[in-house]
Design a protein around this nucleic acid. Structure first.
Lengths: 128, 128
DNA sequence: AAGCGTATTGACAATCATTATCAATAACGC
DNA sequence: GCGTTATTGATAATGATTGTCAATACGCTT
């Protein structure tokens, strides 16, 4: 019996709220937002809904510097980060060439469904 | 008065163990390794030593998917990995162009002492 | 070599995000 | 509407990391 899937107002609420959020949001923040808007949704449910969205590629996730998991509605854009070691300042960078390179390298070695992790660290101007 | 710094066998032990580790290691792993090697070093001390090394640019840190903080010795020559999601098979890859690109991007944004993390994931031939 | 001031240690408590538990609820097919 | 069962939500549990603080030991001076 393949897992049956049901639609609930909770999942819709999370999806909608995630869409309304500008950038990345943590599960805790999202839960707070919903609560403040009058929702009675539970924290655990928010976590589960976000995990679901992520596994269905409706959301992207990344980790903030202090270990929180952040989500954003799955925009098309995929970018990487330049991060300051000292103050944590983060700059979003484009990496089209590198994306292509990564996919090519994977293919050369017979790997399929390539994905990658690329982050650059350094000391930013203020911290040097 | 500027904070005085002292050398202890604990810091050396952490530095050495980090150097011996192949790739990235978590603080917990490192502590376990040291314990298994007969050291009586405390867990909190390992965390502090790693944080120190990171702040002195003797180590880089990044976050694993499951939220752990991972460290690796920096300054030594490094390569990158192509990793199979399923079986964990790892292929070492060259990335000179990308290395150069990373340094250039960092410089463009006023970042100094650039370092980076680049890993490619995929399903290898046997696992596809 | 001995003494001193204080940075550092380490055992343990505290914190905080996330996950597991499980009885109660509600979605979907009939 | 009815029954099955995925889903919810309050709460406990987990696990990595940080804070606490008395005891220790590093580096300097004598």
């Amino acid at each position: 019996m393949t897992t049956e899937k049901r639609n609930t107002w909770q999942k819709d609420a999370v999806r909608t709220e995630l869409g309304n959020a500008k950038g990345f949001v943590s599960a805790q923040e999202l839960h707070l937002n919903l609560k403040n808007a009058g929702s009675t949704i539970g924290l655990a449910t928010v976590y589960r809904a976000l995990a679901d969205l992520a596994s269905q590629n409706e959301a992207d996730s990344l980790q903030s510097k202090d270990g929180e998991l952040l989500y954003r509605a799955c925009g098309t854009e995929h970018h990487h980060h330049l991060i300051c070691r000292k103050c944590g300042k983060t700059v979003e960078i484009e990496a089209e060439k590198v994306e292509a390179w990564a996919d090519e390298v994977a293919k050369e070695h017979g790997f399929t469904k390539p994905s990658h992790t690329i982050d650059i660290f350094g000391d930013c101007g203020n911290c040097s």
